[in-house]
Write a protein that binds this DNA or RNA. Structure first.
Lengths: 144, 144
DNA sequence: GTATATGCAAACCGTTTGCATGGCT
DNA sequence: AGCCATGCAAACGGTTTGCATATAC
C-alpha cells in the first residue's frame, strides 16, 4: 500500500522523473493538476493550494511553494513575472509570448507563431540571453 | 524662504507640473534625482530611498513609495515588473525593450530601434493592448 | 538506514495604510 | 483656510525558512 498513489498517474510520475524528482504523494498530486489533461497551465502557488484544498488533497502551502520551486529548478515549469505581487508558473517551458489581462490578473499563452521578431537588440558583450519575456498586457475595450 | 528649493530646479518643477503635481520639497528632490541629468533611469523605491538618505535629504520611505506611485499615475514614470520581489520605475515612458541582468538585478534600456517586431499575436476580441513588455534576460557568459 | 520531503508556524521583505502633523496655494 | 503631502509605525500579502516528523529508496 505504499504504492497506492504511484499507480494512478504514470504520466505525472514520468514527468517528475524527467526532472529527476522523487514521486512523493504531494508532488504527484500537484503534477497531476498541472499536466494531468495535457493542457498548458498558468498557476500561482495560491491558486494551486486553494484548488487542492477544495478537493480534499492534503498539501500544505509551504509544500506547494517548495514543490513549484523544485519543478522550476528541474526545468519542468517556468516562472513568469507579470505582476509584482505574485509569481506565475507555466507548464510550457518554451520561449513564448503571453497575454496578461490586467483587470482579472489572468495570464494565458499567446499564439507563438503569430509573434515574429525580426531583430532583437544586440546583446552586451560578455552576456548571453537567458530568456526573452514578451508580455502583451490587455485591458477590456471600453464600450462607450 | 518658503521658496528656497523651488528656485534650484526649474526643470524638475516643470516636469512635475507636466503631470499636474504640486512641487513639494520631497517631490522636487526625487524628481531631481530621476531626471536631473536628462538621462533615463530605472529605480526601485529602496534604491531611491537609500540614495536620498546618504545625501542627507530627508525623505521617508513611505513618501518615496507614495511619490513613485503619484509619478506613475501622472504618467511621468512607468512601472516595470521583471522580478517578483520588487518594482522598478522607468523615467522613459515610451514602449521600449529592456535588458535585465539576472545576477545583479540591474534593469537597463535596450536599444529600441534594434527591436523589430514583424507581427504581434492577434489581440482577443474585446481587448486592447495596454502595453507590450519585452524583457531580455541576461546572464554573464561563463568563460570556461 | 539515510537522505530527503513535508507541515506548521514564525520570520521575512517589499509595499501599503491610518492617522496625526506640516506645507503648498 | 483648506486641501493635500509627509512621516511614522503598524498592518499586509506573498513567499521563505527552521525544525520536528514522516516518507522514498
Amino acid at each position: 500500500m505504499a504504492k497506492n498513489f504511484l499507480d494512478v498517474s504514470p504520466t505525472a510520475i514520468q514527468w517528475l522523473s524527467k526532472g529527476g524528482l522523487r514521486p512523493t504523494r504531494q508532488r504527484v498530486i500537484i503534477a497531476e493538476r498541472l499536466i494531468g489533461d495535457g493542457q498548458n497551465r498558468h498557476v500561482t502557488a495560491e491558486s494551486l493550494f486553494s484548488v487542492s484544498n477544495k478537493r480534499g488533497d492534503k498539501v500544505s502551502l509551504a509544500t506547494v511553494y517548495n514543490t513549484l520551486r523544485a519543478f522550476c529548478s528541474a526545468g519542468l515549469v517556468r516562472e513568469i513575472t507579470v505582476d509584482g505581487s505574485k509569481s506565475y508558473f507555466d507548464t510550457n517551458v518554451s520561449d513564448h509570448p503571453h497575454f496578461y489581462w490586467e483587470d482579472s490578473a489572468d495570464l494565458v499563452d499567446a499564439p507563438s507563431e503569430e509573434l515574429k521578431i525580426a531583430s532583437l537588440p544586440e546583446v552586451p558583450a560578455g552576456a548571453e540571453i537567458s530568456k526573452v519575456d514578451v508580455v502583451i498586457r490587455l485591458r477590456r475595450k471600453s464600450t462607450d
